[in-house]
Design a protein around this nucleic acid. Sequence first.
DNA 1: TAGTGGTCTAGACCACAAA
DNA 2: TTGTGGTCTAGACCACTAA
Lengths: 243, 243
Amino acid sequence: MKSIVRTSKLPLYHQLYEILRENILSREWQPGEMIPSEAELIDQHEVSRTTVRQVLDMLAKEGLIYRQPGRGTFVAHPTVEQALVRIVSFTEDMQQRGETPGTHVLSSSLVPAPQDIAERLGIEAGEELARLERLRLADGEPMSVEESYLVHRYCRGVLRGDYAATSLRQALERQYGIRLVRAKQTIRAIPAPQKLARLLSVPPKSATLYIERVSYSQDDIAVEFLRIHYRGDRYSLYNELQG
Amino acid sequence: MKSIVRTSKLPLYHQLYEILRENILSREWQPGEMIPSEAELIDQHEVSRTTVRQVLDMLAKEGLIYRQPGRGTFVAHPTVEQALVRIVSFTEDMQQRGETPGTHVLSSSLVPAPQDIAERLGIEAGEELARLERLRLADGEPMSVEESYLVHRYCRGVLRGDYAATSLRQALERQYGIRLVRAKQTIRAIPAPQKLARLLSVPPKSATLYIERVSYSQDDIAVEFLRIHYRGDRYSLYNELQG
DNA sequence: TAGTGGTCTAGACCACAAA
DNA sequence: TTGTGGTCTAGACCACTAA
């Protein structure tokens, strides 16, 4: 198990956060299981209660844990509710919804950046982009069509991967050290153009949920522009608001 | 100015939060303006730094303030980005988008709760609901149709108000002390039914962004069920995700 | 009664911005 | 040099849960 390094430049709470988060995501601590009490975490990591609570507050805010006064702190069960606030892969998304994901790669090529996409990514028009178009299936039926544009400069050769089987996000992380940690997106309802309607197996002009997303790396650099058309009759988004 | 009551059952941080929040929302503290430093807040309200910082963390998380190390803490400028995370009135929403809002009341009546809505609100089917149907305009053109269902028990007589001119949210707050502080919603793309298409001035089966929302009061009681159909060609949602 | 999380205090040292 | 927010500590009292 990783432990806190007192000489690190990283704040103690940040190190402890990474450690606890890893224990949860790796399933070392199972959903529903009680995690060590605040007192135990203080002893184990030799930090103050304030620091421990700061970390638990962060994890609770993210929905990874929940607390029960007088009882303890527990690992939360993953819920669909997280979908719209956390960046989630198609595979993960479908699994949360209880459907079996599938993928067909429709096309994959290098293209010069069109003006509109270049603007969104903060690069020059004409710069080389890796374009990947995929049909996504849920339980064998078409669910969405995704069009990814990656700034090729940051991930030369990405298109050599097989993205029917592998996750694009995983490849970016493992081969290029790029973690997509933040994204901005807009959501619209638009009628399916003819070609898209055929791919999705719906009548032309059917309502689709259309999302445009720009994703940023851990260094806050725009890396990907994504267009997704979801079938309106099969897909819905969920989120929570506060006043 | 309100001040903290030490004998109150409410936690100090909660009272201080309400006070600072009110100063911001009432525009007593203008956007961009520096708010009192942590040291000043400690003196003014006679609480510890921990308590002050807990409150500032909450406000920063909400996006109401931002901090600059070494400089101070400032009131944030309202941004469109808040739209999908904060609960926003139609009027406020349109103003942020730079359009002039308008409203026509289509119908208003008391109805027994249908099974599906009763479930969402956590009440018995058949319980009395106040139903309000409104057409929303932006720059004089139809933008959306809203159908509100309020649990009448909590706000007897609401329907006497004129909700073409007044905000329903304001009426709930001022007349019934109900503040909608939290909501859950799902977002879909669906084709406009004939009747709706006429109201929105679009062809039948046009794509609409359809939102179902359950809103909760400060006491965490479900108060309102809302259905909104936005014209797909005029409206888009925006939000930010984190990895 | 013992253990848990919720709230709160008084103090400390740091890096950074501005004068 | 002064004031700001960022991080961290050690300790306290409370209400609640479970044995």
